[in-house]
């Protein structure tokens, strides 16, 4: 098993090195910056009235409760973001069903034993697309990308 993992990692690593020059690139003019804490995106979705109302509701929930009661959600995306994204990607009814399911899964005391992948911030990676019943299946692979040893 360990060997297999090593094989996958070395494969990823080899590819990363080779790919640098497979596309032309320009000078990098970025500024020296330390990585900050990611902030919530409060912006409204203006694609239609329904989504606007929904994102406004979400913002209200964030402002009045979620931003005040600490970091409780073990998932990425959080339940509120999951709901908004689910409605956007499907429809209100399906979005509600997906949310009900996610909420139930959140109340599971033993979700650590579930087969969720863990993302960079230590949250359970649980993307909306995997639940839309379209057959899409996204895995969190980028997490392993930077695991090789730096010199």
């Amino acid at each position: 098993m360990k060997f297999k993992l090593l094989l996958i990692l070395s494969f990823v690593y080899g590819n990363l090195i080779a790919q640098t020059d497979w596309e032309r690139w320009d000078a990098d003019n970025s500024v020296f910056q330390l990585k900050g804490i990611q902030e919530r995106d409060y912006s409204l979705d203006k694609s239609n009235v329904g989504m606007m109302a929904l994102t406004a509701l979400r913002d209200l929930y964030w402002f009045a409760f979620s931003d005040l009661d600490g970091d409780n959600c073990p998932f990425h995306p959080t339940c509120s973001s999951f709901f908004v994204e689910a409605v956007k990607k499907t429809n209100l009814l399906q979005g509600l069903l997906m949310f009900a399911d996610r909420f139930t899964r959140d109340t599971n005391f033993f979700k650590g034993f579930n087969h969720y992948e863990i993302d960079e911030t230590g949250k359970f990676f649980d993307p909306v697309d995997n639940y839309t019943l379209t057959g899409t299946y996204i895995r969190k692979q980028s997490y392993h990308k930077r695991k090789y040893k730096l010199k």
Binding site: L16, I17, T20, W25, A27, D28, S30, L150
Partner: peptide
């Protein structure tokens, strides 16, 4: 380095 490709 100028291109920000630090590993290379």
């Amino acid at each position: 380095k100028k291109g920000g490709k630090f590993d290379d």
